[in-house]
Simulated scan of single mutants.
Amino acid sequence: MTYATATDLLTRFDAAEIAQRVDRGVPRLVSAELLTAVASGTSLDAFTEAEVLRATVAKGLVDRALQDADETINSYLSSRYVLPLSTVPAVLARVACEMARFYLYDDQVTDLIKDRHASNVKWLGEVAKGTVSLGVESTSGQQPASSAAAELVSSDAIWKRGNSGGFL
């Protein structure tokens, strides 16, 4: 089960930033547009064979980082939830993207990305302990049935036109 796709990662963060992280060749051939096209499966006719080859390798690095993020998330969730989850909460997609971004930065990680990663690991630890819920049942991995209909309850009216004696 994947919590996020390459397209999710490129949409959540700047595709140009991710392209810079995964194109390790000189000169850089992978642009944001090219990486987005490879990730989404759109036509690559506008790009050279060398660019497409390099972008395919870059997409593999993105997929590997996302897989690493999934495996990390699963290592925390497996102690409390039945995997794979039948529905993926949106928060897990965000966490997977942020963790994959951390892995793509390798040894050049910024303080912001490092802090987000540490925060996500701490949050996953809280989920594993049960102090934070994903909003899915731990035994089945499904979202519980909700009766989230609004309900208004009140007593009889205190002020009624008939009780006012003509005052109102």
Rank of each mutant, 00 (worst) to 15 (best):
A6E: 14
L9I: 05
R12N: 05
F13Q: 11
D14L: 00
A15P: 02
E17D: 15
A19E: 08
Q20F: 05
R21M: 13
R24Y: 14
R24K: 12
V26F: 05
V26S: 14
R28E: 15
A37N: 07
V38N: 07
S40C: 06
G41S: 05
T42H: 03
T42Q: 11
L44Q: 14
E49I: 02
A50K: 04
E51Q: 14
V52W: 04
A55K: 08
V57Q: 11
A58C: 13
A58I: 03
K59I: 01
G60K: 11
L61H: 09
V62Y: 08
V62A: 08
A65F: 03
A65P: 10
L66S: 07
Q67N: 09
D68S: 15
A69H: 09
E71M: 08
T72A: 02
S75M: 07
Y76S: 11
Y76C: 04
Y76F: 13
L77F: 06
L77Q: 03
Y81N: 09
V82Q: 09
V82R: 13
L83F: 11
P84Q: 10
S86A: 14
V88L: 08
V91D: 09
R94I: 12
V95F: 10
V95L: 15
A96M: 11
A96R: 06
E98V: 06
E98T: 05
M99P: 00
M99Y: 00
D107T: 06
D115V: 09
R116S: 12
H117P: 01
A118K: 09
S119T: 13
S119Q: 14
N120G: 12
E126T: 02
A128T: 05
K129G: 02
G130E: 12
G130L: 06
L134K: 02
L134C: 05
G135R: 01
V136E: 07
S140C: 07
G141L: 01
Q142G: 01
Q143G: 05
P144L: 00
S147F: 10
S147L: 12
E151N: 10
E151V: 15
L152S: 14
S155D: 15
S155E: 11
S155C: 10
G165C: 03
F167N: 13
